[in-house]
């Protein structure tokens, strides 16, 4: 009961704050509107202006990748996924990844003959993460004597979840990658990442490191 009263009180206080915040700029806006000139004239000049924000921009990047992922105790297996990136500046970017893999058998399962730790469905691994990246060493890479492509090395760090063994695990990932720009809008990416989560599949809970190497393409738009 006491907590509900607290919420009612806080709610009232919040609404009052909101009211104050809304009314202040509205008063200001009214005086500004009075001073505004003929809107038709303003509109025509706007249309002819050269506006940099109307230019085609290529800050978003979508890509697909495939490679090998090692999951501690479960072997190294094929992994494939998709990524979406937004480039905040020439150096900073944020990205989201989603990928799938399928785990093999542990040494215990192989040696014991018939024992199965996981069901078939539990061997499917899916992960997603949201990461922040920083571009290091931008420059050009030379291929033979005739070709030069823009390229860079990047580092990423982020967090996400891994669905594996019938459970979702909080996962931290980090790694290094190399991007080679074949054109302004097409890039070849290679990356090596570590996915770290805690697992209790083999008894005691432990932190496991899972290394992934992938190659992929992405397009900018």
């Amino acid at each position: 009961m006491e907590s509900r009263l607290q919420y009612i009180f806080l709610g009232c206080a919040f609404i009052a704050l909101v009211f104050v915040a809304v009314s202040a700029p509205m008063l200001h806006a009214a005086t500004a509107a009075d001073l505004e000139q003929d809107p038709l004239v303003v509109r025509e000049t706007d249309r002819r202006d050269v506006r940099v924000d109307k230019l085609d921009s290529e800050n978003f990047e979508l890509g697909a990748f495939a490679g090998m992922m090692n999951v501690e105790d479960f072997g190294t297996n094929f992994v494939y996924g998709i990524k979406a990136t937004y480039h905040v500046s020439e150096a900073l970017f944020v990205e989201g990844n989603y990928a799938q893999s399928r785990m093999g058998q542990t040494s215990f399962e192989l040696l014991s003959g018939g024992a199965q730790l996981l069901t078939d469905a539990q061997r499917d691994l899916k992960y997603y993460n949201l990461s922040v990246g920083y571009t290091l060493f931008p420059g050009e890479s030379f291929v033979g004597s005739k070709w030069a492509f823009k390229s860079n090395l990047f580092v990423v760090v982020g967090a996400g979840a891994t669905d594996f063994g019938g459970d979702q695990r909080f996962t931290v990932n980090g790694g290094v990658g190399y991007a080679l720009y074949l054109t302004d809008w097409l890039a070849l990416n290679m990356s090596a990442r570590d996915h770290v989560f805690s697992s209790d599949l083999l008894g005691a809970s432990k932190t496991v490191h899972n290394i992934e190497f992938t190659v992929g393409f992405s397009i900018f738009f």
């Binding site: 230019l55 921009s57 480039h87 302004d184």
Partner: peptide, 11 residues
């Protein structure tokens, strides 16, 4: 001629 934009750069 302004062609396109990438972060805070213009081609």
């Amino acid at each position: 001629r302004l062609i396109k934009r990438k972060t805070d750069w213009i081609k």
